[in-house]
Structures are given as structure tokens and as C-alpha cells.
Amino acid sequence: MQRTKFILGGLLILSAVVYLIASSTQASAEYFMTVNEVKAEGQAAVGKSLRLSGAVIGDTVQYDPNTLTLTFDIAHVTGDNKEIEAQGGLAEVLYQAVHDPSLERITIVYVGPKPDLLRSEAQAIVTGKLGEDGIFYAEELLLKCPTRYEEGVPEQASGN
């Protein structure tokens, strides 16, 4: 009798947790995509919660401090870590992406303070939605600058 009660209670909790996880995952899932994938999906990608990563192109960064509107372009960077390693690491891939005009690019609009790490060849990870105008409206903006904190070999010119 007691045993059944405990088992029932356990099952109840278990199903509650499964429900919580499933419903929360569904409600807040973001799809990781590369710039190429977004471009390929085109209108199908509009409206989905996306998480997009790419290389910041420094020349395109514009900031209007009156409206706190930040606009910049990112260039396609592969999402495959092995491929990144094969091409000489993230810093190298980002550098190549910025200097290769043949790669797909997408414009990001973000409203908020201009992040401290935003500069050319940084990796931007933006979360938000693609607008019908093809512009990506970001709600969250994360930046990584691998060049500075990865094991770097100093330029010879800086020494001796």
C-alpha cells in the first residue's frame, strides 16, 4: 500500500518534470544556424527563434546613440568545429570570413548599449528573429574575440 503510494508519487513527479522540460524546450528553443543556412531557407526562416553566428565586419558597424540602434553585417562562418580547427582555428576563420567578399552576409540590427567587445573579426552570436526585409533583428548579442585570449604566438616585430 505504502509502496504503491511512493511509486505513484515518484511517477507523478517524473511526469511533471518531463512535462516541464518538454514544454519549456518547445517554448524557448532557438535554432542554431549559419548565415548560409538562413540565406538558403529564405522566407522559411522568418519568424523562427534563431541563434546565428558570424564574423563581424568592422567597416559596417554603425551606432546611433540617440536611439541606441546598432547595425552591422556579419559574414558566414561555418558552424562545424572540426572544420574551424582544420582551417587554422577560429581567429583565422573569422579573419578569412571578413576578407572574403564572396561569402554570404547578413545585416544585424540590435537596440541597446554597444558591447565592449564589438569590433572587426569578432565572432558575433546573435539571438532573435529574421525580418521579412531580410534583416536580422537581434534581442541578444554575444561577442567572442578569440584572437586575444587564445594561445597566441607574439608577433616577432613586437619583441627584441
Binding site: 519549456s24 524546450t25 524557448s28 528553443a29 532557438e30 535554432y31 541563434r51 541578444e140
Partner: peptide
């Protein structure tokens, strides 16, 4: 690749 953020 699907990721979940703080709301999850």
C-alpha cells in the same frame, strides 16, 4: 542544432 536560452 537547437539551443535553449534563459527563458527555458
Amino acid at each position: 542544432k537547437i539551443t535553449v536560452g534563459p527563458p527555458y
